[in-house]
Amino acid sequence: MNIFRLAGDMTHLLSILVLLLKIYATKSCSGVSRKTQELYAIVFLARYLDLFTDFISVYNTFMKIVFIASSLAIVWCIRVHPMVKRSYDKDLDTFRHYLLVAASFLLALFLHEKFTFLEIFWAFSIYLEAVAILPQLVLLQRSGNVDNLTGQYVFFLGAYRGLYILNWIYRYLTEPRFTRWIACVSGVVQTALYADFFYYYFISWKNNSKLKLPA
């Protein structure tokens, strides 16, 4: 474990806590894409299939459970909780996210570490996570003004994988046989998708103005 990966995991955890705070405090999910939340739930379920069979550390197991439980709880909130469900704007959240699931799974069938059930689902979860934010970014562009907590949620979610890239560079330089091409390339693509969001987020922070993504 290195400082970049720990910072990345903590930033990821922070993004989830900010989203939970937003939903709990405002009893609303306005500006939040349910589809992105559903994709993330699939990402964690597909990636942590080895949760009970492969023990790495208490930290690793604990965080996997937190990520799975929180992503399912958020999807449950948006789908079932009467107050929150009412604020979900399905007319804005129209990204055809099942195409992202299909494309990622198809790619995982061709590009994986080993042709085994666990490795194909692991690669699938890596590819799916890279594009999971798309419905959310499209929703932000459509919904015009973005409330602070939602903006912070997306910012931390994008930053965590950026920190993981530093972690992969660090591990590549310090561990002899470290190669994680699938995770690295996918992580770079994932972080690049946030590029324009980061730009507008920085502008809004610098001008101390409301975050607004151009339509």
């Binding site: 474990m1 990966r5 995991d9 990821h12 990636r47 080895d50 492969d54 790495i56 550390s57 930290y59 690793n60 965080m63 996997k64 990520f67 570490e113 692991w122 993981y164 972690n167 561990e175 994680r180 995770a183």
Partner: peptide, 10 residues
Amino acid sequence: IVEGKYHDEL
């Protein structure tokens, strides 16, 4: 942490 296990990252 058992480093080096294949998927030791989250």
